[in-house]
Amino acid sequence: MQNIEFTLNGSQIEVSIDPRESLLHMLRNRLGVFGPKEGCGKGECGACTVLVEHNAVNACIFPAGKVDGLEVVTIEGLQQGEHLHPIQQAFIDTGAVQCGFCTPGMILSAKDLLDHHHKPSRQEIRRAISGNICRCTGYSKIIDAIEYASKDVSKS
């Protein structure tokens, strides 16, 4: 076992992990953080997407020990008190959520994009979510949501 310390959704965390486990495994099975989903388990679907140091990564192929000393954000960390993050709100307002399985990952990929590029084109939005698979929506509403959110986010 190995002890690591990192920031999870703004709080400092100390946890004992097995160096063989993935970040996804640690979040779900040790810390009870269920926002990141396990879809494929091999980097292909994006359901497990989280932010490490503000960059979207697939938690399923990210060794847990690597987050030692770093900052991790999951979907649970986006809401401010009662207020949903503008991207979360935009997903609701534009009808971009159906079953919801892909949603946490989609929103975090969108956050990575909007944190780095304030006014993305639709093409850039498509590229930013190209590592996230959605079986339900057909993507159009998701792209609308992110475009809508980009107007809100760039205001704040």
């Binding site: 980097g43 979207a56 990564v57 990929s109 990575d112 190209s130 590592g131 996230n132």
Partner: peptide
């Protein structure tokens, strides 16, 4: 390559 999450690592 891959998608953004992959290119980030």
């Amino acid at each position: 390559m891959g998608g953004p999450q992959l290119r980030n690592i």
